[in-house]
Structure formats: structure tokens, C-alpha cells
């Protein structure tokens, strides 16, 4: 299985990379880990004229905590790197677990968090929990940088707002007011299966009352979808089975699934209800897990 010919570039630093991306004509693809890009080139859905590798941008391989900003994750951290990060395991265990269970070891050692986001797949595992935690992304281009909520970054299947000369450099999870968060995924196998449905939830519970909730649905809309009526239904309610059931039903109504080889729309809608219920219960009872 061979890939099309393209010109390979490996700029030495971020400024060079942005300059190069701005100058190159034709179809240009940025290479992070390669687990998506190589796959697409092999099956023939991607045939770039230029491939720009980020392998020399070593500063994007770090995870650190910055006072006032939160947890800063370099875009080139691999899924395995996220799984093994003590900082992330202590604060938001759901993110390391989402990274760990998304694929087999040979892929989690290659794929990166930045690639997972820029790929823009509606069934990607990291965006739902990151959106639930209010994460933002930093984009650096020739003329400067901008920071925007991840929720506004992905706009359709495989579509993001990134400009030709921009590189996603950091994902930032802000300090949380939330008291719990979790990510639940339903796949057709135990290992390496794509999500049929996934649900991320982040809740703020004060004295038995839900003061805030974010629920993000994966694989049931063109983008990771905020279940806004489900979120609204929880606000100000006392924690109860009835409140959770009501929110789960609202999330199912919020979802816009399609039928494909992994499941029918009807089946997916029911899965959204069941997994929203489980995710909310877990985030409320167990904290950031």
C-alpha cells in the first residue's frame, strides 16, 4: 500500500513552519503524529502536494501547569503521553482515560492530541471531554497568535477554522469551578473501536444543587455537540435520579445522529440517553474521573 508523491518539509522551528505554510502553493498538509494523515493518504482520500512535518517543534511535546492559565498541553503530546501524565491523571482523569482507550498502544504512541483535534472528526475521543472542561486552543500563524474556545474551532466533519499558515500549538484546560467530569464511550469492541456514541459531562454541584453542567455528545452530529437543553434542564436542580433522567432524555432529543455501519440513528439516540445518565451520575458522585 503506497502513498502519493509529495514534497516533504521539516521546518526547524515554529516561525519557519508558519512562514513555510504561508508561502507554499497547492495542497498543503501538516504532519503531526501521522496516524490520521498516513491513513488518509493510503486509502486515497488525501493527496497533498506538500507535507509539512512538525517533528522539530520539540517544545510542543510538553504538558505543564501555568498559574492563571491552567493545564497547558503541547499539541504534539501523544495520546500515550496524555495517558501517562501525572498532572492530568491527578486533575482530570477522564482525559487520560479517553486518550488511553481510543486506540491500541501502537497508535496511542503515534497519534497526537493536536492531530486528533485538527482532524475534526465528529467521533474523535478527545474533543468532547475537552469541550466539557472548557478547553481552548492556541493557533499561531505568520502574523501572530489567537486563542479560541475548542468548541468554536471545529465547525464540521473534517472542518476547522484553522488558516493555511496556522499551527495549533497548545490546548489549555482552565482552572475549574466544576466539581466533577467524566467521559463515557460506547464502541463495538473492547479495544480500538471507534465511538458509536460518546458523552462527556462536567458538572458543578454545590450543597446538593447542580449550579452548572456541560454535556458534550460525540459521534451524533457533524461536530462534538453541546446538549444545551439537557444542560439547561439541570441548572438549579437538586441532584436526583429524576433530574438526571430528564437531562438524559433532553440530551437524546438534542442529538442529531445519522445511521451508518456502526449503528442506526434510533439506536444512537437511545445510547445518548443511557450514556448521558451514566456520565452525569459518575461526574456528580465521583468527581473528576
Amino acid at each position: 500500500m503506497y502513498m502519493p508523491d509529495y514534497e516533504y518539509h521539516a521546518p526547524g522551528n515554529l516561525a519557519e513552519a508558519c512562514a513555510l505554510l504561508g508561502e507554499l502553493g497547492g495542497k498543503v498538509t501538516v504532519l503531526a503524529g501521522g496516524s490520521d494523515v498516513l491513513h488518509k493518504m493510503k486509502i486515497g482520500s488525501l493527496a497533498p502536494d506538500h507535507l509539512v512535518s512538525l517533528k522539530n517543534l520539540k517544545e510542543l511535546r510538553e504538558i505543564r501547569y501555568e498559574q492563571g492559565r491552567g493545564v497547558v498541553i503541547g499539541a504534539l503530546v501523544t495520546h500515550d503521553g496524555i495517558y501517562r501524565s501525572q498532572l492530568l491523571q491527578e486533575h482530570f482523569l477522564s482525559l487520560p482515560m479517553a486518550a488511553h482507550t481510543m486506540a491500541n498502544t501502537q497508535i496511542t504512541n503515534i497519534g497526537t492530541i493536536g492531530g486528533n483535534i485538527v482532524n475534526g472528526s465528529p467521533l474523535a475521543d478527545l474533543p468532547p471531554i475537552l469541550v466539557a472542561l472548557g478547553a481552548s486552543v492556541k493557533l499561531v500563524g505568520r502574523s501572530g497568535e489567537r486563542v479560541l474556545p475548542l468548541e468554536e474551532f471545529i465547525v464540521g466533519p473534517g472542518k476547522t477554522v484553522i488558516a493555511q499558515d496556522e499551527i495549533l500549538t497548545e490546548i489549555v484546560i482552565p482552572d475549574q469551578a466544576t466539581t466533577g467530569s467524566t467521559y463515557k464511550k460506547f464502541g463495538l469492541r473492547k479495544s480500538g473501536a471507534l465511538a458509536v456514541v460518546s458523552v462527556a459531562a462536567a458538572v458543578t454541584v454545590e450543597g446538593g444543587t447542580i449550579t452548572d453542567a456541560r454535556i458534550v455528545l460525540g459521534a451524533v452530529a457533524p461536530v462534538p455537540l453541546r446538549a444545551k437543553s439537557a444542560e439547561a434542564s439541570l441548572k438549579g436542580k437538586k441532584v436526583s435520579d429524576a433530574a438526571i433522567e430528564e437531562a438524559a432524555a433532553a440530551a437524546a432529543a438534542d442529538s442529531r445522529p445519522i445511521s451508518d455501519l456502526r449503528g442506526s440513528d434510533e439506536y444512537r439516540r437511545e445510547l445518548v440517553r443511557v450514556f448521558t445518565k451514566r456520565a452525569l451520575r459518575k461526574a456528580i458522585d465521583e468527581g473528576h474521573v
Binding site: G34, H39, I110
Partner: peptide
């Protein structure tokens, strides 16, 4: 030291 699928890695990388 970590297992990877070598079919998903470019030799130049």
C-alpha cells in the same frame, strides 16, 4: 522503547 505501527511512520521521521 515504545511499540508503534511502523506502517504509520515515515522513514524520514
Amino acid at each position: 522503547g515504545r511499540p508503534i505501527n511502523s506502517c504509520m511512520k515515515l522513514a524520514v521521521e
